[in-house]
């Protein structure tokens, strides 16, 4: 699989992409401070994202009853699940130690 030409292309693409990403981050960090137009564009982009993207949907989460109930449910079940995880971990550990 790793020797297939198309897969090599894929790996090369991904590698180059990550190199591009880190080069972009370094450039962004070190470049001269944002100009007025950049800040304006950024802010306008954020505004439009709030209007017609998932960001706005995530922001009015409280008014949708089911979602906030799901989040409450997840925060309720986290404690028993963590307890079960600790118990299960200790159990598996003891069993592995005992049987060897």
């Amino acid at each position: 699989m790793l020797q297939k030409p198309w897969f090599k292309f894929f790996i090369w693409f991904l590698t180059t992409f990550f190199f591009f990403l880190s080069a972009g981050v370094i450039i962004s960090m070190l470049k001269p401070g944002p100009s007025e137009s950049e800040v304006m564009q950024f802010m306008m982009g954020m505004m439009s994202a709030m209007d017609n993207s998932m960001m706005g949907v995530a922001m009015n989460l409280e008014s949708g009853g089911l979602l906030s109930r799901i989040i409450q449910l997840s925060s309720v079940i986290i404690i028993p699940l963590v307890a079960a995880g600790i118990a299960g971990g200790i159990l598996i550990r003891l069993r592995n130690k005992g049987w060897e």
Partner: peptide
């Protein structure tokens, strides 16, 4: 919650 519980299990 499942992820957190599973990672605690794996850590132990």
């Amino acid at each position: 919650p499942l992820i957190i519980a599973g990672s605690i299990l794996l850590a132990i």
